[in-house]
């Protein structure tokens, strides 16, 4: 409980910063909304001409998009610090968080907020509300599922960024890994072959970030919902364990950071 309150205060401090730079913040949010809008407009025009591709219609694409953008938006909008971990490990900037109480990975994850992520989340929610025209049940499912998906994304970012403890520099690796997850999460599951799907339900968890939530919004299934919650909890704990294991190797003001 105290932990939640402490996380909430980080979010508050981040909002204060955003408010201090209101115009810049709004501009970034708006830019992201426009950017996302172009994509949806593209799909919309596409389905105007070809109403169904392999059994997929515009509504499915909208669901994939809405859940994806909202989940990724929430993860970087609230927990944008996760993707800065690799750089901080390399530069030695973990020091501050290590001398404070509370697990350092929590401090890190909420230490930054990405305005673009807020834009994504707003756009995703709007897309869902206006283009998917959900029923009340679908809306509730959506609200719960995007939060679960977002926490899996945060865990994935923490785990991939923690590679820096072993590799010295890993910001590009982590960035590419996140990019891969985003890419796979923005296409319908049906497009992928079985071996690819095996990857997407394990190392690059697009299955749990996108496919399962999309299916669940359309048709609720308690079994799959339980699996999803388990995966989210497991990956959060697992990523924290990886980070904590890496801390033993932390070298602080690492000169590794200066290598090209």
């Amino acid at each position: 409980m105290a932990t939640l309150r402490f996380l909430a205060h980080y979010v508050r401090a981040n909002l204060e910063v955003a408010l201090a730079y209101r115009a810049a913040f709004a501009a970034k949010v708006f830019a992201m909304v426009v950017n996302d809008g172009i994509w949806v407009a593209f799909w919309w025009l596409f389905f105007e001409r070809f109403p169904s591709v392999e059994g997929y219609g515009f509504r499915q694409i909208v669901l994939v998009w809405a859940i994806g953008t909202t989940a990724f938006g929430l993860s970087s909008g609230i927990a944008g610090g996760a993707s800065t971990i690799a750089a901080k490990i390399a530069s030695g900037d973990l020091d501050f968080y290590l001398v404070l109480p509370k697990p350092p990975v929590l401090h890190l994850v909420v230490s930054r907020m990405d305005p673009g992520g807020i834009g994504d989340a707003l756009f995703g929610i709007a897309t869902f509300a206006f283009l998917a025209r959900p029923s009340a049940r679908e809306a509730v499912a959506f609200a719960i599922l995007v939060v679960i998906a977002a926490s899996i994304i945060v865990a994935y970012a923490v785990a991939t960024n923690s590679i820096a403890f072993w590799a010295g520099r890993a910001d590009t690796i982590a960035e590419q890994a996140m990019f891969g997850l985003i890419t796979f999460s923005t296409y319908p599951e049906r497009l992928f072959s079985t071996p690819v799907k095996a990857v997407l339900y394990t190392v690059v968890p697009a299955g749990f970030v996108s496919f399962v939530p999309v299916a669940l919004v359309q048709e609720w299934d308690w079994g799959w919902a339980a699996v999803l919650v388990g995966v989210a909890g497991g990956s959060l704990l697992g990523s924290k364990a990886i980070f904590d294991a890496g801390l033993r190797r932390y070298a602080s003001g690492s000169i590794l950071a200066m290598r090209g």
Partner: peptide
């Protein structure tokens, strides 16, 4: 603001 945040960090 940092002080306020630290208050919660240190409970």
């Amino acid at each position: 603001s940092t002080f306020e945040l630290l208050r919660h960090v240190y409970d």
